[in-house]
Design a protein around this nucleic acid. Structure first.
Length: 493
RNA sequence: CGGAGCGUAGCGCAGUCCGGUAGCGCGCCUGUUUUGGGAGCAGGAUGUCGGGGGUUCGAAUCCCUCCGCUCCGACCA
């Protein structure tokens, strides 16, 4: 305990209550509120992403978009509304999504008998339109038109858009009725190319997870029961949250010829015969913002991965004497300009809040580095800076020039440390076991995390089905690193 | 959509059982002393008590009925 804490005789106070340990779901929501990232919308299940949360999503988009384009994929845009008949083409796909589709049935509002504004009875659409829960069918229709010869393949398309899936139990970022994502849709001449592509795009996602979000994840294949409706293989990144639950980070699907068949995507091959194409689809959603919170944030609030932070440095003017104010603010402005020239984003807190409040605001927002600039710093030509993930004991001083030349490295090191800390936690979350009996004991004992065991032990096992039901766990994936021989079972978001 | 809990000031809550002028803490505003990890004092503002209907002289409180939120489950990114 610090001297001050001992003196005041108070328990150490956290910026977020309850703490992770006390009540994880509530802690999660309070982190979002304290960081001012998002709030619930008037429509149930929808969210309002506030500027600070959206800025993080924009940074994710920017980074991922670059990675996707590097794979030879082009961006396009397809409509929000999908004719019901398109959707009806693929039976398995319908089974998977029918329960959660919003449908547009009218095209006009008017006053009804009760003098209330309502859908006009005379404006019923000839064919209902489904608000896209995903776009395989409508993009498949375009691919049908665009693909004629083997020379048109591969065709690689991506779109950034919103999606609607009518969720029963929404949670900010993690599961909302409307969410933001990118969906890629590729078509190939052969099955081998397509399957390789699905794995390749999962690799792109893993790059994004580790090198931007600082979230370690287990790449693997979904079991048949957990596959995307219509997919031959679904590849996934499974991450573990601090409460021990798994989270499907994103998925990449090898769709075989399912959609090529239903959308009639055919090409004339070199041997002069008509052949069906092979397709993939892959998506990365705004849920990853929630994942970053549940992996990195602590009891004082958000901890932003440095590469995705809306701003990487918070400059906090420490003003004691009004006479110094002008000098200090000018120093801060100058520092912010110099950081910008160094490719580091910074923001100066020019509010009139007391210094301690400025600090706590920056802490709760998870700004990677805080810099304090007061009369002392100006007099000594030095400044004081602190990494968010190390806390006040990690305070350091440096001259402006030293800081400018080292801040990039500090951010890089913070990223590495966050990734390694998360990796250590993830490793501790997965327990190797050798039997279903051990699995039952593990979950019955309410141990944190999940288990890994031979896949053959759960395949077709009634006892496994019973365990799934009793402890609400699911098989998360067959990790690539185990060559499909093992499966990870855990509770999941 | 099933089970449970909850809707009272910006936020967190008391008051509801037992009907009688709307309260507390934090935040906010003004002033002042403060300011380097959550300040003190003195003043001040803020509510269709989730909506609608009913009972009553009188409803935050009792009854009916919608709506919303949270947690747990089923479904899913």
């Amino acid at each position: 305990m610090t001297e001050a804490a001992a003196k005041s005789n108070k328990p150490p106070r956290t910026a977020i209550t309850p703490t992770r340990e006390e009540n994880f779901p509530e802690w999660y929501q309070n982190v979002i509120k304290a960081a001012d990232m998002a709030e619930n919308a008037p429509v149930r299940g929808c969210m309002i992403v506030k500027p600070y949360g959206y800025a993080m999503w924009e940074n994710i988009q920017q980074g991922l978009d670059r990675l996707i384009k590097a794979e030879g994929v082009e961006n396009a845009y397809f409509p929000l509304l999908i004719p019901l008949s398109y959707f009806a083409k693929e039976a398995e796909h319908i089974d998977g999504f029918a329960k959660e589709c919003a449908v547009v049935t009218h095209h006009r509002l008017s006053m009804n008998e009760k003098n209330e504004l309502a859908p006009d009875k005379d404006s019923v659409l000839a064919e209902p339109l489904v608000i896209r829960p995903t776009s395989e069918t409508i993009i498949g229709e375009s691919m049908h038109n665009w693909v004629q010869s083997y020379r048109d393949l591969p065709l690689k398309l991506n779109q950034w858009c919103n999606i609607m899936r009518w969720e029963m139990r929404p949670r900010l970022f993690l599961r909302t009725a409307e969410f933001l994502w990118q969906e890629g849709h590729n078509a190939f001449a052969t099955a081998e190319e397509a399957d390789k592509d699905a794995r390749q795009m999962l690799g792109v996602y893993q790059d994004m997870f580790e090198n931007y979000l600082a979230i370690p994840a287990i790449p693997g294949a979904k079991t048949p029961e957990e596959r995307f409706p219509g997919a031959v293989e679904t590849y996934t990144l499974e991450a573990f949250m601090q409460d021990g639950k798994a989270l499907q980070g994103c998925t990449s699907h090898f769709l075989g010829q399912t959609f090529a068949k239903s959308c009639d995507i055919k090409y004339l091959s070199q041997d002069g015969t008509q052949k069906l194409a092979w397709t993939t689809s892959w998506g990365f959603t705004s849920r990853t913002v929630g994942a970053a919170i549940m992996v990195h944030a602590d009891d004082d609030g958000m901890v932003m991965p440095p590469k995705l932070a809306p701003y990487q440095v918070a400059i906090l003017p420490i003003v004691r004497d009004d006479a110094d104010t002008g000098k200090i603010l000018a120093f801060c402005d100058d520092l912010q300009r110099k950081l910008a020239a160094n490719g580091v984003t910074a923001r100066t807190d020019k509010t009139e809040a007391r210094s301690s409040d400025k600090m706590w605001t920056a802490i709760k927002k998870g700004v990677p580095v805080r810099v304090e600039v007061g009369a002392r710093e100006i007099a000594e030509g030095k400044l004081t800076f602190t990494r968010r993930d190390l806390g006040k004991d990690g305070k350091k001083t440096a001259t402006v020039d030293e800081f400018l030349s080292s801040v990039g490295g500090v951010l890089e090191q913070m990223h590495k440390d966050m990734l390694e800390r998360a990796r250590a936690k993830m490793k501790a979350m997965v327990t190797d076991i050798a039997s279903l009996k051990e699995m039952r004991d593990f979950f019955a004992a309410e141990k944190t995390g999940g288990v890994r065991l031979d896949y053959s032990l759960i395949k077709g096992s009634e006892e496994f089905e019973a365990i799934k039901k009793e402890f609400s766990v699911t098989s998360r994936c067959l990790p690539f690193s185990d060559k499909g021989q093992k499966v990870i079972v855990a509770k999941a978001y």
